[in-house]
Simulated scan of single mutants.
Amino acid sequence: MKKSIVFLVCLFTMIGYSQEVKLIPQINVSGEGKIKIAPDQVTIVAAVETKGTNAKDVKKQNDQQMEAVIKLIKSMNLPAADYKTKRVSLNPQYDYEKKKHTYNASQTIEILLKDLSKYDELMEGLVNQGINRIDNVTFQSSKLAQYQSDARKLAMKDAKMKAEDYVSVLGQKVGLATVITDNSQSYYPQPVYGAMRNMEMKADSSAPRETMAVGEIEITANVSVSFKLE
């Protein structure tokens, strides 16, 4: 008897629930927004490496070369907040064939250059003052947040346009959005990697040099949207 009562209660509950649920006509679409912009600043990660048999002398030489690099940066009137030391190391290395130690000192500095017209001057000056390794060069935009917002708006417009295209042949209209899902991937500036060891850069005073092709940055936003149909 108890089992019969429980069954009837469950049955009436399911019937009541099924009467309450109403299917809402809707359409699910995706949208994409893309913006291409020219970068207006660049981050340079560069290092001074020195080697020798005496740790103290190796470190001293490394410090002197990095001091010259920092003086160069200051002479170009870069704000103090736009450059910083990233890594400092002094490591022993043992040559098993010659059975003796050598030492490798390294200092890495990161520079944010907001005036791209100074790029060639800065890069040439860095090498002349002792930089012998360029780890990467990353072109960026100072207005990234604004452009990401613009890309998201374009993605929403694209989604709504797609929905209107689909339902136009059905004699229906696109209503309110019920669910919005951001599918955008996090934006990471793509670095240009390179290595410069024991380089000598000679300036040609007779003609300006151009060693940089910055191209464009592409910012993309992706969204999924569910719209009610009217």
Results as ranks from 00 to 15, higher is better:
Lys3Arg: 08
Asp63Lys: 14
Gln93Ala: 10
Asp135His: 11
Phe12Leu: 14
Ile217Thr: 05
Glu210Ser: 12
Lys157Val: 07
Leu72Pro: 12
Glu216Trp: 02
Gly33Pro: 06
Thr102Arg: 03
Pro191Arg: 00
Ser4Thr: 11
Lys2Asn: 11
Ala81Arg: 09
Gly31Tyr: 10
Asp120Val: 05
Ser206Pro: 04
Pro39Glu: 06
Gly130Ser: 09
Val69Asn: 08
Lys98Asp: 01
Pro191Leu: 05
Ile5Asn: 00
Thr102Leu: 01
Gly52Cys: 07
Lys202Gly: 02
Asn77Arg: 09
Ala177Phe: 03
Val225Ala: 07
Glu20Thr: 14
Met156Gly: 06
Val9Ile: 15
Lys56Ile: 07
Leu23Gln: 11
Ser141Cys: 05
Pro208Gly: 06
Val58Met: 05
Tyr147Trp: 05
Gln129Asp: 04
Asp135Phe: 02
Asp165Gln: 13
Val223Cys: 04
Gln61Thr: 10
Val48Arg: 08
Gln61Glu: 15
Leu126Tyr: 03
Glu32Gln: 15
Glu97Met: 11
Pro79Ser: 09
Pro208Met: 06
Lys143Tyr: 02
Ile44Cys: 08
Val88Asn: 08
Val127Asp: 00
Ser205Gln: 11
Asn183Gln: 12
Leu8Ala: 09
Ala195Trp: 03
Thr85Gly: 06
Arg197Pro: 03
Gln148Asn: 01
Leu113Met: 03
Met212Thr: 09
Ala221Cys: 02
Gln129Thr: 14
Ala105Ser: 13
Val137Asn: 02
Asn104Met: 11
Ala159Asp: 08
Leu113His: 02
Val69Lys: 04
Arg133Ala: 03
Asp158Arg: 04
Glu49Met: 06
Asp204Cys: 01
Asp165Val: 12
Phe227Leu: 01
Asn28Met: 11
Arg152Phe: 04
Ser75Cys: 01
